[in-house]
């Protein structure tokens, strides 16, 4: 997981919803006007903001590492086709967006992010999407990921005893079936506690 870096900078205190919107705006802007000066400005802004938030340079560079070879290939292709300016533009734009996105994650607790998301989804209500249900689904998803990993480890152990640890089908089928059974139990348990997403809990 990308760690949350605690702090009290203006970047940390900015409401999560506003940070996400700013990120979307920056991305749209950079793709609508593919200009080198804009991309470099965004890169500078990312560097400046991370400095302001007190994020170590090492952590920011770590955001770019998974992208390093994609960036290298992109730059080489662009260099060969359109000259160095186009290559620099693509690289600078991608790096700026990834850094800005990383900055949002590094300066926002995931609980705050989920709450902002649930609030930001209230416009979906007329379309028949209940934000409270989305909130429940998000919370369940985050809880299910470690549970799935634990069940997968158990099943792998059981299949190793049968000499089947290399068969993906023999690993996945029992995991999914067990999770489906568990889901029915969880749904029954939630209903048994009179869960009513239509009633506003606040």
């Amino acid at each position: 997981m990308t760690p949350y870096v605690p702090g009290d900078s203006p970047v940390h205190r900015c409401p999560p919803g506003r940070k996400i919107l700013a990120l979307v705006a920056a991305g749209t802007l950079l793709f609508a006007w593919p200009r080198l000066d804009l991309a470099l400005a965004a890169l500078a802004a990312a560097a400046l903001l991370s400095r302001l938030a007190g994020i170590p340079v090492r952590l920011m560079l770590a955001q770019l590492r998974p992208l390093a070879w994609i960036l290298a290939v992109l730059v080489l292709v662009q260099l060969a086709l359109d000259g160095w300016q186009a290559g620099l533009l693509v690289a600078a734009r991608l790096a700026a967006l990834v850094l800005l996105a990383g900055l949002v994650t590094l300066t926002t607790r995931s609980a705050d992010l989920i709450e902002a998301l649930q609030g930001g989804l209230s416009w979906l209500r007329p379309l028949g999407v209940n934000p409270a249900k989305v909130g429940l689904a998000i919370a369940l998803t985050l809880r299910f990921i470690p549970v799935l990993a634990a069940i997968a480890a158990e099943v792998r152990e059981a299949q190793r005893a049968r000499g089947l640890e290399r068969s993906l089908v023999a690993l996945t089928v029992p995991v999914v079936v067990r999770m489906l059974k568990m889901s029915d139990d969880i749904a029954a348990a939630i209903d048994a506690r009179s869960y009513d997403p239509d009633r506003d809990s606040r």
Binding site: M1, I70, V98, L113, I138, L142
Partner: peptide, 24 residues
Amino acid sequence: VLLVCAGLPLMAGGRGGLGIVMGP
């Protein structure tokens, strides 16, 4: 996809954030 956009590192290799969606 919503959770990935919100910045949770759920993509393979622990990646996440809007950068994924805006990337290649």
